[in-house]
Nucleic acid binder design. Structure first.
Length: 299
DNA sequence: AACCGAAACAACCGCCCCGTT
DNA sequence: AAACGGGGCGGTTGTTTCGGT
């Protein structure tokens, strides 16, 4: 717009040539100094944009275009209940997955759940203002409170207190449910973070994202109502979550983090990926030829 | 075959923290 | 000690693809 502006910052989809430049830069200097890519005139992208492109698309061993497996779904759901929306941290438990992948996965699932629940509610509560027919999941009207906005109470304290001693999510205890929620938990409750506020109306209901039958060693909870069970049973691709009720298969044998598990050095947000970068291990451990195939833009 | 809604994917924005000067 | 810049993260939004009618 302004002619005096030094350089236009390019935005939008990346071209194969840009990818190649970025890959070459990383190959030479490692995944760091993102801002220097622009200052050197290699790309008209911000450092942030370069970093994001590398982390989400160009990094080796990513599972691009590959749907989440049942095991990955379980892991995400369980870890979300443990850590809250700490996508980067959750992603460290999922080799080949990025925080963006996890975030998108979670967003899709929770929105679908919200829609189904709303539809269900509408069938017997016509007063609801939610009108799925008239709005997509990205409805500008924001009738739907995204489920991901829910955060388990005292996440950070739990991380330092509980995950320092064990990586396995702590079995549900009703003591851990925030008092402010308690009155809403009558139909069903479960673990610390697994509750989701489906709607911001006065009829808001706490809704489980997965069944109480899933968490091993969990103390018995208030059972799902028949309606709720029926509703949740429609989540056929939460199959691992709802699972056969008589299944005795242990469902949550959480994988070890792909990177260093992260009792956070100082705070939760600094996960091991950073540390690896700083120690060069992250980069240097890659096979020498890993950059050879420049990812071609998918058709 | 065309249309429409949902889902998946990709990228940007704003905020925050940390290290450096 | 304060200011500043870089980098990381979570949230959000735009676009494309997929699937059902």
């Amino acid at each position: 717009m302004e002619a005096g502006r030094k350089e236009e910052i390019k935005k939008g989809p990346w071209k194969a040539e840009e990818d190649e430049v970025l890959i070459n830069h990383v190959k030479r200097y490692g995944p760091r100094d993102w801002s220097s890519i622009r200052s050197k005139g290699l790309l008209q992208r911000t450092g942030k944009s370069c970093r994001l492109r590398w982390v989400n698309k160009l990094r080796p061993n990513l599972k691009n275009g590959c749907k989440f497996s049942a095991e990955e779904e379980r892991t995400v759901i369980e870890l979300q209940s443990e850590f809250g929306n700490k996508w980067a941290r959750i992603a460290t438990y999922l080799p080949g997955r990025t925080d963006n992948d996890v975030k998108n996965f979670w967003s899709s699932r929770t929105k679908r759940l919200a829609r189904i629940l709303h539809n269900n509610n509408n069938s017997d509560a016509s007063s609801s203002s939610f009108t799925p027919k008239s709005s997509s999941h990205r409805s500008k009207g924001k009738n739907v409170k995204p489920l991901q906005s829910f955060k388990p109470p005292q996440v950070e304290e739990e991380i330092t207190a509980s995950s320092s001693s064990s990586k396995i999510p702590v079995p549900y205890s009703s003591d851990r449910v925030d008092e402010t929620m308690r009155s809403d938990l009558q139909p069903f409750t479960f673990g610390t973070g697994g509750l989701a506020l489906a709607e911001t109306t006065t009829t808001a209901t706490m809704t489980p994202l997965f069944s109480d039958s899933l968490i091993p060693n969990q103390q018995p909870l208030a059972p799902f109502s028949p309606d709720s069970r029926d509703l949740l049973a429609r989540f056929d691709d939460f199959y691992g979550i709802l699972g056969p009720e008589d299944s005795s298969e242990p469902l949550f044998a959480l994988p070890q983090p792909f990177f260093e598990p992260s009792p956070p050095p100082r705070r939760y947000r600094h996960v091991s990926r950073d540390d690896d970068e700083h120690s060069d291990v992250f980069f240097d451990d890659f096979p020498a030829d890993m950059f050879d195939p420049v990812p071609s833009p998918s058709p």
